[in-house]
Design a protein around this nucleic acid. Sequence first.
DNA 1: AATGATTTGCAATATTGTTGCAATATTTTT
DNA 2: AAAAATATTGCAACAATATTGCAAATCATT
Lengths: 137, 137
Amino acid sequence: MQQEAVLKKAGLSVTESRKTILELFFASEGALAHADIEKHSSINIDRVTVYRTLQTFVESGIIHQIPTTDNTILYALCKDSCEAGHHHDEHVHFICVSCNKTNCLDDVMVPMVKLPKGFLPIQTAMIVKGTCIDCRN
Amino acid sequence: MQQEAVLKKAGLSVTESRKTILELFFASEGALAHADIEKHSSINIDRVTVYRTLQTFVESGIIHQIPTTDNTILYALCKDSCEAGHHHDEHVHFICVSCNKTNCLDDVMVPMVKLPKGFLPIQTAMIVKGTCIDCRN
DNA sequence: AATGATTTGCAATATTGTTGCAATATTTTT
DNA sequence: AAAAATATTGCAACAATATTGCAAATCATT
Ligand SMILES: [Mn+2]
Ligand SMILES: [Mn+2]
Ligand SMILES: [Zn+2]
Ligand SMILES: [Zn+2]
């Protein structure tokens, strides 16, 4: 079980809920929102548990968050290199306006940018909206 | 009145609510969330009107949205050059983790980035988290 | 298998967002 | 300037989303 290994590596208890949610992420094409998980047909986990699990996964470096402009947070699996408190996912995220899937472009690094004097950057996110490769016919 | 001019230029009716909300944006240091406006002491506008006004302002190119990872949308004034349906605010946004203010870095353009073959970009956002100039003592 | 620690689900509550519609305000026409 | 037409607002009701405390269930450790 890949899921168990991930949980153990993160120092988390291995529970049914966590395995199931993690499985969803592994099986999923793109990023997932809370609602996607809660409403997934094959899942029957309490809303509250979903909230708490996502939070735990973020804190443990298992998933990372993707900002949006629709009162939603998207989550996607981290690379192996991520650790608790120190994520390492400075890649670009692509939101397709056609199929509405959000993909991690793992190979496209977020470029550096020169900030005005006095601004000290800690973390940078880059979100590109457009048409994804599957939707370009 | 600067507010009236902006509304008229956008082809919108000039109403008290709109002037008041616009005034808040002009007076504000950083970006505003819906809750900031609704809860602002000097304001007494119905929640629904705030929602509708923000939506109208976005559609009219008066304000633009800033994505976040906290189930919130931030809004900030557009430059003059923005028009309905065609925003022109491809600047970097800076979220200070200390004072929690979000600033438009109007002079820092979002850099181009080379996407994998097949991905067609329409709009790009860049959000930098860190410590702002006011919070660096 | 027993113990202790952690996680889960439920219930209650709070917050946030949406919709229809009548009253009001604004703009346009006369 | 008044009347008519149009657009906006606030209310009420509702829907959806998020948070908290706590007892029951599950998991890790012995
Ligand atoms: Mn990602
Ligand atoms: Mn901006
Ligand atoms: Zn697509
Ligand atoms: Zn600051």
